[in-house]
């Protein structure tokens, strides 16, 4: 009666690559005609060459050769730590403020006030507090990722159908079990939205944190390349962050679906 599994046709899969493809072609065409000077936008082949050396070259060959792996590890570690902090605080706080009006009143001014401060304003303070490097970056990432996670979780928890609570209560579900059996699964779509937005922002703030002169990381490479005038490496960094950001978003989404049946069935 209903197809439970819907496979996407090859054509539908290809659609996702249409816009990146067009952008790459335009870039190639512009560079080929020489309409844009190399020092503003390097030729795609230059960038591919730089990227190849950055990813696969042996260290010492050129300034950036073979550094990718260690940069990636440092950056991933910072994003992972910051995002985990944000999640560990954001989801419980969001659930509580969504369900308990007193908690919501208590937090709303503070959270929305802090949220209004652009992340870059925190940078000087974070540097004074945590110095340059790991801690500052993790702090910035955690701070930035917290807000979308908290706000979306709170919205999800607030909108749980009250009939579901009544149904649970009449079937003998206690408060604590209700959190796991009703509240979390019912809020799952919004929680996932919050996590995905949070992870996206985490990558943005990673770069911000790494711009401060840390020796390694993908953001550090971009900053370093700017000072050395290596615009090809800047573009390599941008493309890599775009790719890794997208992959981590997909991983997050599918991990949630793997872990929670409510995510599989409603998100």
């Amino acid at each position: 009666m209903f197809g439970r599994i819907r496979r996407e046709s090859p054509f539908a899969c290809a659609q996702a690559w249409v816009i990146p493809g067009i952008m790459a072609s335009l870039w190639f065409a512009l560079s080929q005609t020489g309409a844009v000077p190399q020092y503003l936008l390097p030729h795609p082949l230059e960038v591919i060459r730089a990227g190849h050396s950055y990813l696969l070259g042996s260290p010492g060959e050129t300034p950036y050769a073979g550094r990718f792996y260690s940069d990636l590890c440092s950056s991933l570690m910072r994003v992972f730590l910051g995002f985990t902090f944000a999640l560990a605080v954001g989801i419980p706080a969001g659930i509580m403020s969504g369900r308990i009006p007193a908690v919501n009143r208590l937090l709303s001014n503070t959270v929305n006030g802090i949220r209004a401060v652009p992340g870059i304003c925190w940078l000087p303070l974070a540097m004074v507090w945590f110095g340059i490097g790991m801690k500052t970056t993790v702090f910035l990432v955690a701070l930035a990722a917290f807000f979308p996670i908290y706000l979306n979780t709170a919205a999800g928890a607030r909108q749980v159908n009250p009939l579901h609570y009544r149904a649970g209560a009449m079937m003998g579900v206690t408060r604590i079990r209700g959190i796991f059996a009703i509240l979390l699964p019912a809020s799952m779509p919004q929680i996932i939205t919050g996590l995905r937005l949070g992870l996206g922002i985490a990558w943005a703030y990673l770069v911000l944190g790494e711009l401060t002169g840390v020796p390694d990381g993908l953001g550090a490479v971009i900053m370093d390349a700017r000072m050395l005038g290596r615009i090809d490496m800047i573009v390599v960094g941008i493309v890599l962050i775009a790719g890794i950001g997208r992959v981590s978003d997909l991983l997050l989404y599918h991990a949630m679906r793997l872990l929670f049946r409510s995510a599989r069935r409603t998100a």
């Binding site: 159908n161 009939l163 579901h164 009544r166 149904a167 699964p185 019912a186 069935r265 409603t266």
Partner: peptide, 8 residues
């Protein structure tokens, strides 16, 4: 009166 099944 309304649908109150758990959709997940």
């Amino acid at each position: 009166q309304e649908d109150a099944l758990f959709p997940w």
